[in-house]
Design a protein around this nucleic acid. Structure first.
Length: 421
RNA sequence: GUGGGUGUAGCUCAGGUGGUAGAGCACCGGGUUGUGGCCCCGGUUGUCGUGGGUUCAAGUCCCAUCACUCACCCCA
């Protein structure tokens, strides 16, 4: 038996309806806020990700599915979507028509990590990106949109964590201060952190080793090093989150693993996901558009982990699983031929109709109708063909009515539709 | 990449100290010569994850390997 690739998964009927609901509700919510859908490819040239995400990040260093195509160019299955959206914005010079653009996109991402709860090698994200707006108010709006969406989807135990990473003007100062601090205590850090200290000191803050946490409690905080502009920016984010009554937590250790983030970053966490607590995360990435060859325009956005969201969203989805409206139980070859024509016509009319293609007893056909949840059964046999009328049985009330064969499809359709009201 | 747990029928799981497999559910048929759910009767289903080793004999012991799973790491 050929099995699916490790860390990949099938989403089967019964579960897929939940995903459809979530995607539908999310998309319409984003459209309510003026976002347009954009569809981008699943593969890009490797250098797009290497440059935007950062050469020193785990994603680029060891998690990407990268391989040469037949011509020898290095291509990569996207590990995230933002880089592609930015690439598209720049490539099509969308900023020329209007620098302000708001997009959302849904699709699979690929990272070769060790799978665990809430973490797959092919996973799905809903991404939202805004270009050309520098105001922190737009960050607030993104967080507001996320939290209200999650509330609508009945996600329990929600918390918004926010932080500011500063900008090119102030981050170097902080980085220097942090480096100095880390150098002084480096003998108390875990081996990972000692290695990270030089290449990417900010990420030491994210370490979960208890001994590191302990020494890091004394570490300088980015908040104290923000320049006036960033400080004001971050204060405004908090002010408006309060105004919109979004509960949040300033989390100094929220560093995030992608290099392109600046200023406000945020994560929506939930307690019900095991170790992978983030259902959504994002932040501002003001330098990325320019870095990828566009004008110096600000941008911000977030990504929702759809797999994780599907696990914690407690919306009822069973009602969206469509049951057959009708099962045609046919006895004998002649009746079966008729039944087949009818179910095709019913399908065309928007009624889900099933039949049994083996020539089974009426009893076993009734059993099957019951099993698949058909609300009605149409019974047809030699007797009915002769008399020119078939029997329509309501499986719930057990009521049976005669329907003239001449116009079965229309009559049954109106009968069932009327009953449904 | 590292560590723990698990792998027996389609599903959930039994199978002390080695003697070549079982239950419930599901599925199919019958009890009603053409009427479902409940009940009763009967029936089908397994390379015991895979490969090797020990043994007269391995689902059971040993080794390896793969997969699933949880956690570390990292992130959505």
């Amino acid at each position: 038996m050929i099995q699916l690739i490790r860390g990949f998964k099938d989403i089967l009927p019964g579960e897929v309806e939940r995903w459809q609901q979530i995607e539908k509700i999310a998309a319409s919510r984003f459209e309510d806020f003026g976002f347009k859908e954009i569809r981008i490819p699943m593969m890009e040239r490797t250098e797009l990700f290497a440059r935007s995400i950062g050469e020193d990040t785990d994603i680029v260093e060891k998690e990407m599915y990268t391989f040469p195509d037949r011509k020898g160019d290095l291509i990569t299955l996207r590990p995230e979507a933002t880089a592609s959206v930015v690439r598209s914005y720049v490539q099509h010079k969308m900023f020329a028509k209007d620098p302000v653009q708001k997009f959302y996109t849904i699709g699979p991402m690929f990272r070769r990590e060790r799978p665990q709860k809430g973490r797959y090698r092919q996973f799905y994200q809903i991404n939202v990106e805004v270009f050309g707006v520098a105001s922190p108010l737009i960050d607030v709006q993104l967080i507001f949109m996320l939290v209200t969406l999650f509330t609508r989807l009945a996600v329990a135990d929600l918390k918004a964590h926010i932080n500011s990473l500063g900008c090119p003007a102030c981050r170097p100062n902080y980085r220097a201060a942090l480096s100095k601090f880390l150098a002084a205590i480096s003998n108390k850090l875990c081996s990972d952190c000692r290695r990270r200290r030089r290449r990417n000191p900010l990420r030491v803050l994210d370490c979960k080793v208890p001994s590191c946490r302990e020494v890091l409690a004394e570490a300088p905080s980015i908040i104290d090093y923000l320049c006036d502009y960033c400080q004001e920016d971050f204060a405004k984010v908090q002010e408006f989150l309060k105004k919109l009554q979004i509960p949040f937590l300033v989390d100094k250790r929220l560093v995030r693993g992608l290099d392109y983030y600046t200023r406000t970053t945020f994560e929506i966490q939930t307690g019900s996901l095991g170790a992978q607590s983030a259902v959504a995360g994002g932040g501002r990435y003001d330098g990325l558009v320019k870095m990828l060859g566009g004008p110096d325009l600000p941008a911000t956005g977030f990504a929702i982990g759809l797999d994780r969201l599907a696990e914690v969203a407690e919306i009822r989805h069973s009602e969206f699983i469509r049951m057959p409206d009708l099962f045609v139980a046919a006895l004998g070859e002649q009746s079966q031929d008729k039944a087949f024509e009818w179910i095709c016509q019913f399908g065309r009319q928007g009624l889900v109709a099933e039949m049994d293609f083996e020539d089974r007893s009426l009893k076993s056909q009734m059993k099957r109708a019951d099993k698949i949840g058909a609300t009605h059964v149409l019974i047809v046999g030699d007797q009915e063909l002769q008399e020119g009328a078939v029997i329509l049985r309501n499986m719930l009330t057990k009521e049976q009515t005669l329907i003239p064969i001449k116009e079965v499809v229309d009559r049954v359709k109106t009968y069932i539709k009327r009953e449904a009201q």
